Simulated assay, not measured.
Amino acid sequence: MSQRADTALAPDPVAQTPDRGPKHVAIIMDGNGRWAQARGRPRLFGHHAGAKRVREVVECCPALGVKYLTIFAFSTENWKRTQVEVAGLMSLFRRYISKEMKALSQRNVRVRFIGDRVRLDKKLVGLMDQLEQETSCNDGTHLTIALNYGGRDEVARATKRLARDVAEGRLNPDDVDEETLPKYLDTHVLPDPDLVIRTSGEARISNFLLWQSAYAEYEFIDTLWPDFSAEELKRLCDAYGQRDRRFGAVKP
């Protein structure tokens, strides 16, 4: 398990091969609660520690050649947690957006949110809209935050929009193919992820980017998210660059 240094570990750009590395990395940030409990602290303490990891990872993306970073912040299933934890997470999201808005803009980061906003409180949604607007002209790292997101829910919502267009005559059902549905997904402006990382030792995808990750490479690592570092991301990107990706084909 990697141990977090007190200061950010900047990846060595000389040692990188960005052209072979992933352009879009998606991360299931798991293990915050267990990290806190192992230290005798409440689960929310771990979530706050995990939020700090996000900044380090975003900052190291340009040196690694990672143009797109998508992080799983809160799933549609996370509402099943205690009211105290859910309320604490919502407060953390509001605080994170307010605190990081200026820094993200200054670092030329473009921020988007995916997921169903209907259930989120109006103040949080307002901050999400503001952050997206403030960073809309940035063309550096594209940071996508999945908030109240579920892969099945996303596909269901996309299918409803597609069906509505068919019913209203804007789309011919005979023209619907596997290239059509992605245009209705929350991620329609993003490329599919090349590499999906899940921390904390769990080996499941937990309803994350189900359609988009059909040909993604996966890394399931033991590191708890608050211990994840730029150095570990560098190692995983290097490993990705060594993989032989054939997308179902066979080399001649």
Rank of each mutant, 00 (worst) to 15 (best):
G21M: 06
P22W: 11
K23N: 10
V25A: 06
A26T: 10
I27P: 06
I27D: 02
M29P: 02
D30V: 02
D30C: 00
D30A: 05
G31E: 04
G33P: 04
G33T: 07
R34E: 01
R34L: 02
Q37Y: 07
A38R: 14
G40E: 07
G40V: 02
P42V: 05
L44M: 15
H48R: 15
A49P: 10
A49S: 14
A49R: 03
G50A: 14
V54W: 08
E56H: 10
V58S: 11
C61F: 02
P62Y: 10
A63P: 03
L64G: 11
V66T: 10
V66R: 04
V66F: 07
Y68Q: 12
A73N: 12
E77A: 03
W79S: 01
W79K: 04
R81V: 12
V84N: 08
V84C: 04
V84L: 14
V86M: 06
V86C: 13
V86E: 05
A87Y: 00
L89Y: 00
L89W: 00
M90A: 11
M90R: 03
M90P: 01
M90C: 10
M90G: 12
S91E: 15
S98D: 14
E100Q: 14
S105L: 04
Q106E: 15
N108M: 02
V109M: 09
R112G: 07
I114E: 13
I114L: 15
I114S: 14
V118S: 15
K122H: 14
K123F: 12
V125W: 09
D129V: 00
